[in-house]
Design a protein around this nucleic acid. Structure first.
Lengths: 164, 164
DNA sequence: TAGACGTAGA
DNA sequence: TCTACGTCTA
């Protein structure tokens, strides 16, 4: 009945390697990387706590990527590019709360990022990251947004990708 | 690069029979029934005129279906259930214009309708219809909408379907 | 029922 | 750039 019938889990997905490419968001759901068709942050409930399983970076939020192993990911909510209505302060709920809990528990988060290279575009699995820190600041619309500092776990295959 | 690479055409699609079911909108595009993922009215340009190739009825607009061979299809635009913004008068452009031209030229239009039966849902190809008439009236939001009277071409396989 | 970093075509 | 009868999870 549904495209997706996988159980949510944190960590690597068996059969999916770092660098694997996917053309469409639903494909990420099919293989179990990220269950949402649109939402950027996926999470599960473990012992009554929400824990992030994966995030997708598509460029619709103002994320700053400093290096191949560090990324700053913007929390969800209040982005008029994404949903209707006026910009509002992001709240520590849903995906934002889940990423906070991922930091607290040190749980790895799968990172998928969109790419565009010579007319070809899609999503690439970048591997596992740790939520190293988070803070709140004023975003482009003058409202508070959450920023999550993600650090790539070392020892994973190096990614050489033209992402711009 | 794209899911869809078919040439648009009016009339039946080779290999697709009346009664064929599809689970998702993109599947309609893949087989060539209807190229749009969301838009309800598909059309092509022929001799400089837009001609409707197919319509999808999903229940988001207020359509009245009187009988198995007649349907009244609402034009596109100004529906807050579908797109952002305030309700506005529908304009004789895009899909609406194309359906008007289909009436003028007597060109058959493929009709696909959503169905729901015992937890199973999807889309069914209902066959070819003629645009028999159209008019303008006040819709649910007080704005003008177009109504298209479609009449099923006789001689096609009978459809026995639980559509409600 | 509402929210969500979707997609393609005009 | 914007519109469009999507589709899922919570």
């Amino acid at each position: 009945d549904k495209w997706v019938n996988t159980t949510k889990q944190t960590g690597d997905i068996p059969g999916v390697k770092v660098g694997d490419k996917f053309r469409y968001r639903p494909e990420l759901a099919i293989v179990g990387l990220h269950s949402h068709f649109q939402c950027g942050i996926d999470y599960m409930t473990e012992d009554g706590e929400m824990i992030a399983t994966s995030i997708v970076e598509s460029g619709r939020y103002a994320n700053e990527t400093e290096s191949p192993v560090v990324m700053i990911y913007t929390g969800q909510g209040g982005n008029p590019k994404v949903s209707k209505g006026e910009p509002i302060d992001q709240k520590p709920e849903r995906g934002n709360r889940a990423l906070m809990n991922s930091k607290a528990t040190g749980t790895p988060v799968r990172v998928i990022r969109s790419y565009k290279f010579r007319e070809e575009s899609g999503y690439v699995y970048h591997g596992l990251y740790i939520v190293d820190n988070f803070w709140r600041k004023r975003g482009d619309y003058g409202k508070f947004v959450f920023k999550f500092l993600l650090r790539r776990i070392s020892g994973q295959p190096k990614l050489t990708l033209c992402n711009s």
